[in-house]
Design a protein around this nucleic acid. Sequence first.
DNA 1: CAAGCACTTTACGTTAACGTCAACGTCGTC
DNA 2: GACGACGTTGACGTTAACGTAAAGTGCTTG
Lengths: 146, 146
Amino acid sequence: MSISEPEATTAVNGSLPRQRRTYSIGELARMFEVTPRTIRFYEQEGLLAPERRGQTRIYHEKDRVRLKLTLRGKRLGFSLAEIREVIEMYDAMPDGNARQLKRLLEILADKRTNMERQLEDIRLMQRELDDVELRARDVLERLDQA
Amino acid sequence: MSISEPEATTAVNGSLPRQRRTYSIGELARMFEVTPRTIRFYEQEGLLAPERRGQTRIYHEKDRVRLKLTLRGKRLGFSLAEIREVIEMYDAMPDGNARQLKRLLEILADKRTNMERQLEDIRLMQRELDDVELRARDVLERLDQA
DNA sequence: CAAGCACTTTACGTTAACGTCAACGTCGTC
DNA sequence: GACGACGTTGACGTTAACGTAAAGTGCTTG
């Protein structure tokens, strides 16, 4: 079990198979619009660890969620190494010692301040875009009058 | 004059030199915590075009603002090429034809949707962080009791 | 059973964004 | 006038994150 499960069944359901769906690498690639190569690369970097049926990889919900989080992290500018670090610590959590856990909390706080700055950057950037757009429209208008 | 001036003097001041401050490459590097190499590289990529006094580069407010925007764009995951594209179009605005301006507006809209997704990603990521932190604190607590 | 399709591994190639190093010019100053 | 701090131009090196091509495995479908 790993890194939260958004669409986990709503609590009361005994030992039902929960979500027995699995995915091939191709399916996963299509649904996230990446190439299989990318997914294999993420595995090689320790971000995924799919089951193997013989030679071929079998992905479960857990893996899909990880991939989703990984890609989200990437869009936010985190390196794969950073993402892996958090994932690893998370997986080691249940039996983690205090030092490791404190370290994890530190990292999280770090990411958090990062997010804050991102938010500020976005606000500022949006203002810039507003400004530029306004000027552009202005010029366009004058241009239309001639 | 380029890409907006945040701290422009507040309107009513005739033909005062406004802001006659200039910067060396080292000063700029220190104030933004990048290396001179980075700044030269940005110039080579068409993001900056400082004045030259003989051999050495002289940066004005205009250049400083550009650098600031460039770095902000980078933090938001834009490539230098993307950033340059916007800057170039902005500079070409006053005498730009309608087609170019419409293109600029398109690009801006594009960036804007990008920002929106970023915001959503940040929201989601913050929830994840909250979740992970909560669990970590939980484990820590149980650990402290033993 | 041959063809095709999806999957596999291995390995080398590529791009962006700089880092690093060499070799040199130009100041101020001790 | 040597020295150190700062600037300059090449030019090559490096890292992350994949792309791409080759060569093979395994299923199922006409």
